[in-house]
Design a protein around this nucleic acid. Structure first.
Lengths: 237, 237
DNA sequence: CGGAAAGTTGAATGAGCTCAAATGGCGTGG
DNA sequence: CCACGCCATTTGAGCTCATTCAACTTTCCG
């Protein structure tokens, strides 16, 4: 639970929100957190929901997506363990959810009533500080994604996605995994990168034929040559 | 100045950070803010700067940009009056600046030493709350941009950019200007939208020939048919 | 097995890029 | 006041990369 004792075991990349609190501060809050699980495909937040959920992802992967007027799905971004969902603002200050949030894998998270979240942040400035820092980081991440989407070739988009996935599946020391489990289908990768299924498949095929990666089966990807992959990710039209 | 009396006159779209403070709270802080002006083209922040600047934009327009390894400039985003620059984290918690920030027009802003900013936020939770809210808003904005860059046609990118500029140059009631002063060159628009100069020019030409917009001269744009422009902005491949 | 979904591969089309040249605006200097 | 040069913008022609449409193969589960 976010504020409970078990929160300290949360799989979070940066410092957990609750790490700033002492045990005695945690105690009265512990009852309010709700441990929750999502199955693959389950929707956590639907665009337009008046009171967005506040939650901290413990394990699993979710997508933030948007359906265009034409019915085309666009994946705005991914949410990994340690990421925070929702805005801790109440009442008329709370903007309605702008995007759908759907589990791509089985997900466990700890969810909080928004009012409790609001109160806890007001009572514990260190928590608010942590949340602010995390939000700044997210802003930087998203800005980084923009440059990739705006100008990069299909090759660079795919290579960059593989690298980022390897990085986020690695341990906390920044080590990247050399065999990663792709949590997305080709179609979802396409929606994430602004490409088509066929193009994603072709680019992965190219990387495989070049010996940069291997496809050991299933949705696993073996990264044989991280440097070459990084180089491919830099390519710009 | 950000915390001074004159701060209340800041041209800010959302609530100013300091609006949460009483006059007596403002008093001891007022001396620390530095009113600063930038000429067009002047660089406020350079990528890699160890201690990023904290500032609040009062008037003018800046670009957040990144130079790719190939030397190609990519404009990550724009900063309009009311936007906040920098992260209020000190010491080793402060990440180095990731992007360049350059004035596109004459700019006036109020700048603060980072230590003062940090302290003020710690002392005044309402300020931190405002900053958090503003950052969430910025995150939502940037996520919105992603979908445009990932899949939208050149036509939609250009139309969307014109609409957003009209919107941000409008008054606080959400009214959009029908004659806007484009603060960017064709080249800068191209860098912002991930297109080439020629394509931007062609798309603007198309919109003009369709009667949707007019070019009264200079870098002004008259929006004759806002609805048609909005429709063009929706177009997706 | 067998059917459905996911993924791969191929050929043709088209949007946007590149290269190149023409046009227009604007300040400088004669 | 006009000629000139510089820069931004516009316009044109050919090309490239990603998409589209379509067929085929593989994987996943019942």
């Amino acid at each position: 639970m976010l504020f409970g004792k078990s929160c300290r075991q949360c799989v979070v990349r940066d410092a957990a929100l609750c790490a700033a609190l002492t045990d005695s501060q945690l105690e009265p809050l512990a009852r309010c957190g709700v441990q929750r699980s999502l199955a693959r495909g389950e929707t956590l937040v639907r665009a337009g929901d008046p009171a967005p959920i506040c939650a901290n992802i413990q394990s699993g992967l979710l997508k933030i997506s948007q359906i265009s007027p034409a019915g085309q799905e666009m994946i705005i971004g991914l949410l990994w363990p340690g990421d925070f969902i929702g805005t801790p603002f109440m009442g008329d200050a709370a903007p309605p959810a702008q995007h759908d949030i759907v589990a791509l894998t089985p997900v466990s998270l700890c969810q909080f009533p928004q009012a409790i979240m609001e109160r806890a942040l007001a009572d514990h400035p260190m928590m608010e500080r942590q949340l602010l820092r995390r939000t700044f980081t997210a802003l930087g991440d998203v800005r980084g994604r923009i440059s990739r989407l705006a100008r990069a070739t299909a090759q660079a988009r795919v290579a960059g996605f593989l690298l980022e996935t390897a990085h986020r599946q690695g341990d906390d020391d920044g080590e990247t995994m050399l065999i990663i489990e792709l949590p997305l289908s080709r179609g979802e990768i396409a929606d994430l990168l602004g490409l088509t299924i066929e193009t994603v498949s072709r680019q992965i095929g190219k990387l495989k034929h070049a010996g940069v990666i291997g496809l050991p089966g299933g949705r696993r990807i073996a990264i044989h040559d991280p440097d070459a992959l990084a180089e491919a990710a830099e390519a710009v039209i």
